[in-house]
Design a protein around this nucleic acid. Structure first.
Lengths: 352, 352
DNA sequence: ACGTCACCGGAAAGCGCTTTCCAGCGCCGG
DNA sequence: CCGGCGCTGGAAAGCGCTTTCCGGTGACGT
């Protein structure tokens, strides 16, 4: 587990270079003060010779600075989070900070755990990506942890709404989904289905709400929108499609609250012989890279995920600002060929 | 940057609970010894009331144990690395360790930097994912760093060959690529092209060598295999395809050394009106999830990336073993419709 | 009833570093 | 020629913990 035979320490270097600990520290890990060129040379040479590597923990303890940040996300293989992570890591890197990544796999317990661990690491900042959970117990506990983080002088920020005070990078989930709903309505669709993820995720709620609102604006009453709930994953999308089909699908368009779900749904639909968009239009959300590569390319809403991650990290790292900031990021409707006008020629339901 | 007004310390808790520092430590961060139930209760209550969070740095310093590991990879948004990261993170998590992730964006300097930083953090283990670089200076420097890591009692492991002593998780790049080359040859292709990434990546070399060998075994002389080098990315793939086309393509099949490149190439090919596989067969490597979703689905070689990441982390974390282990992982040929016999007029579309 | 031990709590010594604070010293002006 | 200033180097005090070593107490055996 732990390191056993510790390596050379600063004292070792100081001794080897015949200088004091203080001088060695100043020379190597550069404080404010200057060290004479001769001593500095001796010290650097000794450090090199001994293979000295400063102990970041000791530095953190003594200096009170860590240069590490924490990033909490659901699953790093999900391209949505990968993109956010990339931005966040780049931003941290720019400020010379290391990123510790925690994968929660959508468990609130694990999420709290990571935040606690990050706090123990005295990270300078914590970024929580992925949707918040609509659960009072969770929210109270998380609020307390984050309060502690702030009181300890650290920062934090959310990507997506968490209904917890703090900096937030807020994609226009509602607006984007509304545009989607409206677009579908305008194409003549009158019976819609939405495959939602777990409804305790606030992002899911916003997207569904927005979608319904948009569809209504286009003349589709909310009562004509069926809702199917399945996990927020590819398999969830598959399951949703299956349920839709098995239930004797009356909808002419399916909205999956995330692209990853849409991918799963498309798989299942195609396998069942349902033609997209002829028999059923399909839309997703996020505009993950593969969406445009699918057959047919799937309509969705584009979010600049990488910038969102970067912004969140910058917000979390910025200890100057007083008060919490909310940065809104636009969502752009991307119509591709998975959506089509609802046909005059009767959409055949040829599910096996 | 650093935390300013530090939070409550163990001393604060001890004082509040009217016990000694030692007892508080034992009660909260559980050493070997037991604390009486009454005191333990008082202490825990005080800790909760004060919002005490142990200082991991102090613990690391005092106890010599960190429970953090480092993961170095090229780019987290590349699904290849994302999958490896997932496995590595999961493995670390299982052992109660936190993962710090460094993105090198393929710069050897940054890679060395991260390793140094991880060493400073006294991580228990370092996993280096992604190909090694065929560069003596790099190799010498890295060897030295990793030696230091080991002397300091830490572990490390590679995913893919780095030509540096250490544990290695070694995918069968050569064998997999050979199977690919052979398959193409067997389909009648006599003029092949390979889009390689930067040739100083050892993985690239192995895949190309394997491919050439396989093709030769199938009757295609090495002289009939053109080589195009471009970055190891989607754009690189695009560029490779463009170069191939511009050069008056004589090849009937194109091997991209990574799926990501194949994706870019397919884009470009399609845009240029080249039908795959009718005009040109296309193959990739890794079997990243989207490969099977492309049109046409692209043939490739499957690697169990997640397990590879997990294994590497386990190897790095396992301080019991003496000597270095090499774990070979099989590569499985996955033929899909992007490959077809040459010459024959073949149905290029296959739906349903 | 006394000696012995097991057991639990506390004092204190670091872990490796940063950072005051202080001492020595060459330099200037007076 | 002397006092003070500005330097640079060193001593030492922590940063917040873990852990060894000790001492005191109660239970137990005889």
């Amino acid at each position: 587990m732990g390191n056993q035979s510790r390596g050379p320490t600063l004292s070792d270097v100081a001794r080897a270079a015949q200088v004091s600990l203080a001088t060695a520290s100043r020379a190597l890990n550069g404080g404010q003060r200057v060290v004479g060129p001769e001593l500095r040379g001796r010290i650097e040479e000794a450090a090199r010779r001994l293979g000295y590597v400063p102990n970041a923990h000791a530095q953190a303890l003594a200096g009170g600075t860590t240069s590490t940040v924490g990033l909490v996300l659901h699953d790093i293989t999900d391209p949505y989070f990968a993109a956010i992570a990339r931005g966040a890591i780049a931003a941290a890197s720019d400020q010379g900070s290391l990123v510790m990544v925690g994968s929660t796999f959508r468990s609130t317990a694990r999420e709290l755990d990571f935040v606690r661990t990050f706090r123990a690491q005295r990270v300078d900042a914590i970024v929580l990506a992925g949707s918040g959970f609509d659960d009072d117990g969770y929210r109270a506990a998380m609020t307390e942890e984050l309060d502690g983080q702030r009181r300890a002088g650290g920062g934090y920020a959310f990507v997506s709404e968490h209904h917890i005070p703090g900096h937030v990078v807020l994609p226009d989930n509602h607006g984007g989904a509304a545009a989607l709903g409206r677009a579908l309505a305008d194409l003549g669709h009158r019976r819609l289905a939405v495959a939602g993820g777990p409804s305790h995720l606030t992002t899911v709620q916003h997207r569904i709400d927005g979608f319904v609102r948009g569809a209504e604006a286009g003349g589709v009453p909310a009562s004509c929108i069926d809702r199917i709930d399945h996990p927020f994953s590819e398999d969830g999308g598959r399951a949703a499609a299956r349920e839709l089909l098995d239930g004797g699908c009356r909808a002419t368009a399916l909205f999956c609250v995330s692209d990853v779900m849409a991918m799963g749904a498309l798989d299942e639909l195609t396998a069942a012989g349902v033609a997209v968009p002829k028999d059923l239009s399909l839309v997703g959300f996020n505009d993950v890279p593969t969406m445009r590569r699918l057959t047919p390319p799937v309509s969705t809403v584009r979010l600049d995920l990488e910038t969102m991650g970067r912004t969140a990290m910058e917000l979390a790292l910025d200890r100057s600002a007083s008060g919490f900031r909310t940065v809104h990021v636009p969502a752009e409707l991307v119509l591709r060929s998975s959506t089509a006008p609802v046909g005059v020629d009767v959409p055949s339901r040829e599910n096996a």
